[in-house]
Amino acid sequence: MATPSLYGLMAEFDNAEAIVKATHRAHEEGFMDMDAYTPFPVEEVMEYVSPHNTGVPLFVLIGGVTGALSGFILQMIAMTIDYPLNVGGRPPNITGWPSFIPITFESGILLAAFSAVISMIALNGLPMPYHPVFNVPGFERASQDRFFLCIEASDPKFDPNRTRQFLQSLGPQRVVEVEP
């Protein structure tokens, strides 16, 4: 089990093909708590590191349905119950529903879009002012041109020495310890 003085071990690679191979190997090896840090989304890497559903689509669905329903109900209440008024021959009752569709649609889209953005940020745990991986010297290149694979100490198969040996066997530029 993890020693509290270590967040994990991180290997640095200088090209995208290497990080794809490395995550594939680590996945085969049975590591679960690992993450790759890449300057752009690499599809194969995401499949190994985060094989589960992202959770975002469900929130978007809920947001969209909620927005559309509340937009429609708001108009129905205002135009047929609270202040019924016949304008332009559009009846002030339920049969006038077609003229409520544009606003129903817009409010559905609005809430769905907010749900997409907020759920993505919240499920990712952002904003996060501090994270151990930033302790690694040279990690700023993860957003630019270097690719990092970090096996976290919380992984049941993690062992400081054997995991280090495993990472070394992937042919990285270097392997470093990540302080918590």
């Binding site: 993450d35 790759a36 840090y37 752009f40 995401m46 985060s50 990712n124 952002l126």
Partner: peptide, 17 residues
């Protein structure tokens, strides 16, 4: 940047959103 760290788990959700 909200503390964005280019994590692949984050990228996955990001791409979906």
């Amino acid at each position: 940047s909200l503390g964005w760290r280019s994590s692949s788990r984050h990228w996955h959700r990001y791409e979906m959103a």
